[in-house]
Each structure stands twice: as C-alpha cells, then as structure tokens.
Design a protein around this nucleic acid. Structure first.
Length: 621
DNA sequence: TAACAGTCAATACC
DNA sequence: GGTATTGACTGTTA
C-alpha cells in the first residue's frame, strides 16, 4: 500500500513538473507568437513604406518624364526659333549693303558742316526736321557723321543713353554755371512732360541718360542748387537746355511715338523676345522701304537712332545678368545682323548643357544646376527659359544654407569678402547681410534666389573650400607685394583716383528718433510730411525719403520687428579708423538752421586721397 | 510713376 | 582686419 502511495506521489510530482514544463512551453510559444506578430506588423509597415516609396518614385519618374517632355518641347521650339531667326537674318543681310550705299550716296561734308543739307523732301518732313534737331540741345551742334551708332557715345559717361538726343557734355555752359532754381526747373519739366504726354522714362533715357526711378525722384524732390554736386547738377543743366529749346518737346514726342512700337517698356508682357526682335526688324525694314521718299541722310539717322535705342533697350533687358550698369551697350553688337546673331547665340547658350563653364560667379542663365533639397529628387537641368519654372518648384532652406556657409567660412578661415567676390559676385557688405538675415526662400525674387543657389552649389562642391583658400592666399600675397612696391607715396594728388567719394550722411540719434516717430504715425509719408520733416531736421528731402524706403524695406526684411538701429553718431575724428593724414574731414552745415544745431547734425565730408582708393582697388584685383 | 528689391560704398563696431 | 550697419543708388515691378 505504502509502495502504491509512494508511486502515486512520484507520478503526481512528475505530472506537476510536466505541467510546469508545459506551461513554460506555452509561455515561450506565446512570446514567440507575440514577437512574430510584432515582426509581421513591422514587416507590414516596411512593406507599406516601400509601397509609398515606390509610389513616390513612380510619381517622380512621371514628373521627370513630363519635365523631359516639356524640355524637349522647349528645345524644339527654340530650334524652330533659331531657324526662323536665321532666315530673318538672311533676309536682313542686305541692310548693311543698303547702309553702305546710303553712305556712298550721301553728300560728303567736312567737320565744319554741322549737318548735311537736307534734301527737299526732308525739308518738308516735320518728323525728319525735328529729328535732325536732336543734336542741338546744348547749343552746340553735333557734327553729323557716319560713325557707327555705338561710337556716338561718350566713352566715359555713364549717361550714355542720351546720345540720341544730346551731346554728352556741355563744357562751355558748365564753366560759368549760374545758380539754377532747381525746383522751378523740375516743375517746368514736369508740366511740359504732362502737357505733351511724354513719359518720364522716355525723358529720362533720351534727355538725361538716367533711369526713370532716378528722374522721378529728381523731379519730385529737386535738391537745392547749392547742395548739389557737379554730377548732381548735370541733370538740371540738361533740363534747362531741354526747356530752352522750343523744338525739344516736339522731338521728344516724335521719338516717343516712334519708340512706342518697338521698345520693351511698351510691349505687352506676353510678348516674347523673339517677337520683339521681329518687331525691331520689321520697323527697320519699313524704315528702309521708306528710304527713297526721304532724305537719305535723315532717314539713315532715323533708322540708326531707333535701332540704337531699341538695341540698347534689348541689351539692357536681355543681357542684364552680366551688364548691370545702366546704359552700357556691348561693343560686340555692331549691326542689326550682329545683334540678331547675339540673340541666337544667347538662345543656343541656354540650350547648352554645361558645355561652357564660365568664370565664377557664372550668370545663372548659362550654368547647369543640380537642384536638390535634401528631401527632393534631383533634377539636372539646363536653366534658361525654364529657369523660372524650376526656381518656382524649388524650396531651399535659406537659414540652413547660410548657417552652413557661415560655419564653413569660419572653420576654413575664409573672409566674407573673398567669398562674396569669388562665389557670389557680391561685396562683403552684401554677403554680411545675406548671411546674417537670410530671407525665406518664398520671399525672394528670382535674383535673390540666385545667391542661395550659388551658396548651395558651393556647399556641395568638395573642392570649393580649397579653391577659395588658395584664392584668398593669392590675394593676400598680391596685396602685400603691391603695398611693398607702391610704398606709401601715392598721395601726390595726381592719381587717377582723385575723384572724391560721395559724402556720407550719418543721422544722429535725435534725427532717427524723429524719423521713427513719424514712421509710427505715417509709414508712407506724404510729400508734405517729407518736406516738413526734412526742414525740421535740416536734412535733404531725398535723405528723408530714402530713410523711409530703407526703413520699410528693412522692416519687411526683419519681419515685423523694427530693423536694427544700433549705431549712434560719434564725432568724426574719433570715429574714423583711418589716419587723418589720409583723410580730409570737414564738417559742413547744410543750411543756416544746421549751423545752430551742429552738435546734432554732423555731416562728414570725406575727400579721400588717391592712396586709399588705390589700395581699395588693389585689394579688389 | 511711386515703391520696391537688391546692391554698393562708407563707415561703425568688434 | 573682418564684419555689421546704413544712406544712397539702379533697375524692376505693381
């Protein structure tokens, strides 16, 4: 019995152990099952993600295909355009021959012949008559000549576009300048322009050789004669000559009408460059067709003037990235044929894929970009006509880019100046602004976006830092050797850089307070307010309006907060970090009011001697 | 055509 | 000597 009991106990305990085992097995199995379930879920998730990625890739692929199709279409269009332009060019080739023939047939004249005697037909043609008078504005008559239009320009003047109308310099008048009532001159000009419905732009281009914006400002806020520099007085002298010539307005009206049909500012926004070129060529052709019924000389001048203006405008508009200075005309553009060819070259260039790498910084329109953001697919394209479209689709993180650039510059000991000049084609101050206060991508204009694309490209280039370091070292060496060879004997007063730099107005804290207080009440002050404020603070009205432009602009830039206004006025002597031996500093009062308050209104007029300018230039080389 | 964006040059600041 | 600020300017845009 006992044995039986013991056996049963043994069995029971074995069963219990088995049960434990079984329980453990079950638990293990449950754990395994759980893990498997997790893994399955994970796999499903991965599968889902993969599916998404595949879908994304398919979408990208689709978009790329569309883009390629679009580019191919554009390429086809461009090719067609080129063919058409080439055909037109072919049809225009006789233009040069006609011109040559015109020259041969035109009566020869000496330098004493102010203008060739117009033919009978021209005598009775008011248009030609008025256009023949365009050379008389300064009381000096310009010798009619056969020189190419481009050569009619002054080689040094920045106001080059006024050649159609006036002789560049009026030296004789400037020798004995009488004091002009600039307000009256400006007012009379405004009245005249309004009366004859001549736009400021035409007036600005033809008479003053300035941009419309500048002329608008000059006319709205003429500075007093005494506070104008020699350069600043020039437009007023020109305006005076303009007002003095009875035929000038008529001439301007005629030219305005003639230009209206072909120049870019009058074209519709939809009009393409090609259409514009065609218009110019058509205009040119119709003028040539008319040649027999007009004075040979006069017609040629008309055609030449119109072409010159149109070419100038085209150049300024289409070649802007490289030719930023107003009123410059590429010397390579010598004839309508050359002009059209240059456009063809430009179009071809747009279609090239990175085959013509240019010196840094390259104009954006002829470089090949790789435009990835970190989260976006790469699209390697040639920017050109599709540039806007591509830029639209981009979304670069400007803050991150500037941050990385700043770090790279600091780590590699590269200065903002070198970086700006070599990579962006900007000055140190512009780089500083860009890096310290990058605008959001969406707030940037196309031009503004260019800088960030260049920075982005620079960051991606593995050799960029080394190249810049080398450049920096070379520049330093060059500067040092230049200094050694030049010594410090450049301030002999005979240098070519004797031209004085423009004086800089430094607003006092009190002036800024007043301006800011006015801004709070009236962010867009009326002309009356500007004048009152200017008088109150003894400032130029242009200084006041510039301050408001800048303040508004910088408020926009810095968000809703007020722009940084940390600088306070200090005495010029103590603030100048340059040796007083190099600078001639004088304080000047703008007007009698100013003299009463000179402790607050210090104007520093800095006449920089040649040594400073020479050094600056050497540094830039 | 006024207002704007982008930029420069002078100069203040570190 | 490098960087930041700011008044002024040019060409563009609404």
């Amino acid at each position: 019995m006992m044995m039986m009991k013991m056996k049963m106990k043994m069995f029971a305990s074995r069963d219990i152990r088995d049960l434990h085992h079984l329980e453990e097995e079950v638990q293990r199995l449950q754990e395994v099952q759980e893990r498997s379930a997790n893994q399955i879920a994970l796999l499903q998730e991965v599968q889902e993600r993969s599916a998404n990625q595949i879908a994304l890739l398919q979408e990208v692929q689709e978009r790329s295909a569309n883009h390629i199709a679009l580019l191919q279409q554009q390429l086809a269009n461009k090719t067609q355009d080129i063919e058409r332009l080439q055909a037109e060019l072919q049809s225009q080739q006789d233009y040069e021959e006609i011109k040559t023939e015109l020259r041969t047939r035109a009566p020869t004249h000496t330098d004493d012949d102010v203008l060739p005697a117009p033919s009978d037909s021209a005598d009775h043609d008011p248009v030609i008559q008025s256009e023949l008078k365009v050379h008389h504005f300064c009381g000096k008559e310009e010798p009619a000549s056969d020189i190419p239009v481009e050569n009619m320009r002054s080689s040094s003047s920045s106001s080059s576009s006024s050649v159609v109308f006036i002789k560049e310099e009026c030296e004789d008048e400037e020798e004995e300048e009488e004091e002009l009532d600039t307000s009256s001159v400006a007012r009379r000009v405004r009245e005249t322009l309004q009366k004859h419905r001549v736009g400021q732009r035409v007036f600005a281009h033809c008479v003053l050789g300035l941009s419309q914006g500048t002329v608008s400002d000059i006319l709205a806020r003429p500075k007093p004669w005494r506070s104008l520099t020699r350069r600043g007085r020039e437009p007023f002298l020109r305006m005076k000559s303009f007002l003095a010539d009875e035929d000038s307005v008529q001439t301007l009206t005629v030219v305005q009408q003639r230009l209206r049909g072909i120049v870019p500012w009058a074209r519709s926004p939809q009009m393409s460059s090609d259409q514009l070129i065609r218009n110019i060529l058509d205009q040119n052709r119709s003028e040539l067709m008319d040649v027999d019924s007009r004075s040979q000389r006069g017609s040629e001048d008309v055609i030449r003037n119109i072409l010159h203006q149109a070419k100038h405008e085209m150049h300024v508009t289409s070649e802007a990235p490289e030719e930023v200075h107003y009123g410059t005309l590429s010397p390579s553009v010598q004839s309508p044929a050359d002009f059209v060819q240059s456009i063809i070259r430009k179009v071809k260039c747009e279609m090239d894929e990175d085959t013509h790498p240019s010196a840094s910084p390259a104009p954006l329109s002829i470089i090949t970009h790789s435009f990835p953001t970190d989260a976006q697919p790469r699209t390697q394209v040639c920017v050109g006509s599709c540039e806007d479209e591509i830029l639209e689709s981009l979304d670069l993180d400007t803050v991150s880019i500037t941050q990385r650039v700043k770090e790279a510059l600091v780590v590699n000991n590269i200065g903002q100046r070198v970086f700006g000049e070599e990579v962006l084609g900007l000055t140190q101050s512009s780089v500083s602004e860009l890096l310290s206060r990058p605008k959001p991508w969406t707030k940037l204009s196309l031009k503004g976006k260019e800088n960030f694309i260049r920075m982005h490209r620079w960051l991606r280039d593995p050799h960029s830092v080394q190249r810049l370091t080398d450049t920096d070292q070379r520049a330093r060496l060059k500067r040092d050797s230049q200094r050694l060879s030049d010594g410090f004997c450049l301030s002999d007063g005979s240098g070519a850089f004797e031209a004085t730099k423009r004086p800089r107005v430094v607003l006092s804290a009190h002036e800024k307070d007043s301006l800011r207080a006015t801004y709070q009440r009236e962010p867009y002050p009326s002309q009356h307010t500007i004048e009152r404020l200017a008088a109150q603070l003894a400032l130029q009205t242009s200084t006041v309006s510039n301050w408001f432009y800048n303040y508004r602009s910088r408020i926009r830039r810095d968000g809703l907060t007020e722009p940084v206004q940390t600088r306070t006025v200090r005495s010029p002597a103590s603030s100048s970090s340059v040796s007083s031996g190099l600078l001639s500093i004088k304080q000047e009062a703008c007007d009698p009011e100013m003299e009463e308050d000179t402790h607050q209104h210090t104007r520093v007029s800095v006449a920089v001697q040649s040594v400073t300018k020479a050094e600056d230039l050497n540094e830039l080389v």
